[in-house]
Design a protein around this nucleic acid. Structure first.
Lengths: 202, 202
DNA sequence: ATCCCCATGTAAATTGTTACATGATTCG
DNA sequence: CGAATCATGTAACAATTTACATGGGGAT
């Protein structure tokens, strides 16, 4: 497939990066809020994709202000002030353009699943160890899935529908991984059995 | 969930980054090969996660050589030479340790799906546009899925089983996304219908 | 001969990470 | 009053991207 975008590095013509758009989106969802609140939203999110580190958010917010996508007004806080961020019209347009179809092709492609990445190279492991890999992947996926299911239920009751649907999407993705791991187990298990039968294990 | 790793930044104690391990794994799979061949493997891979740019691979390979995980021997090529990379014993150990269970918790967590990310912020779009978003996501996912299915079939015949299983994993993930998009469509479609009924669209 | 692939890099810029630093506020 | 949280940053560093640069080999 062609069309190899950056996702990480901003190219003036290609709209915001994923993180930039996520910041705009967060401000849109919350309404006027501090950079710290945006940061905390990433910090609290279960994903490890964005760390929400101060060193990422504050410079990013400053860039978005410079580009006129966010505006800040000071709000008294203690004896100083804090900065409440809002979307400008341009910011809202940018967010909508990022969301609106047609999606770039790469957005609809497959994700980078570190379990799948490892499987791709699993040949480097002895056959018996491969079985343990699959077992471990399954156990940990199940564990994580249980947690996400709790979240989904909570959001179904109190959250907004989009947050809930996103959590539901995670559920479905993890269930799919479990299905896949069954197939993997079949192949990997057969290899291990054959090796055992050969007596080539030591 | 705790345990927030970098995935991108090497921490001496925490083993290789994903990209470093993928390079080691690629050399392990191919046997002795040039840095260019590794680079091309990433370039040809359908994933946009790693660009396989020269600026990423060559310095990375140099780092891995310095750390004694890869060794290079010169092979005559034209009037000069090219460098054939092999795994050292330490390199093989590092790769195995990266592959072997127990997996770090974050590896078994959900992936960063840009479609899901967008859905999380979809409220910022007018209701009618949201329906078009879902339609477009479905169409593009289906298209991509068709391509991957072809790949899987090809690999089932000729490829090694791990490559095939990885492709199969992508198939299952994309099928799961389609399932999820059905659920999303139900909610999003209902909202749009309600808005239409209200006559609040303009 | 021309074009595309093989092959190896470097340079500048950007982005993000970890870690540090500081202070105010709120809650128990 | 002490601890956790809110709030805002900066500094050093690492990794990666884009773009540039160069040259040999093989096929049409």
């Amino acid at each position: 497939m062609s069309d190899r975008p950056s996702q990480r590095q901003a190219t003036p013509t290609h709209g915001p990066t994923e993180l930039e758009a996520a910041v705009l989106g967060t401000v849109a969802r919350r309404g006027p809020c501090t950079a710290y609140a945006v940061r905390k939203a990433f910090l609290d999110a279960p994903s490890t994709y964005w760390s929400g580190s101060a060193g990422a958010i504050y410079p990013l917010v400053a860039r978005l202000e410079e580009r006129g996508l966010l505006s800040a007004r000071e709000r008294p806080w203690g004896r100083g002030t804090k900065k409440l961020l809002s979307l400008t019209d341009a910011g809202r347009r940018t967010l909508r353009r990022w969301l609106a179809p047609p999606l770039p092709v790469w957005v609809a492609a497959h994700t980078a699943d570190p379990v799948r990445t490892r499987l791709f190279y699993l040949e480097a492991l002895p056959a018996a160890e491969r079985v343990r890999f699959v077992d471990d992947a399954e156990t940990k996926t199940r564990l994580y899935l249980a947690h996400v299911r709790g979240e989904t239920q909570r959001l179904a009751a109190e959250g907004d529908p989009f947050e809930m649907l996103a959590a539901r999407g995670i559920e479905i993705e993890l269930e799919a991984r479990l299905t896949w791991l069954q197939e993997v187990r079949a192949t990997v298990g057969r290899h291990a059995a054959e090796e055992e039968a050969d007596g080539t294990h030591h």
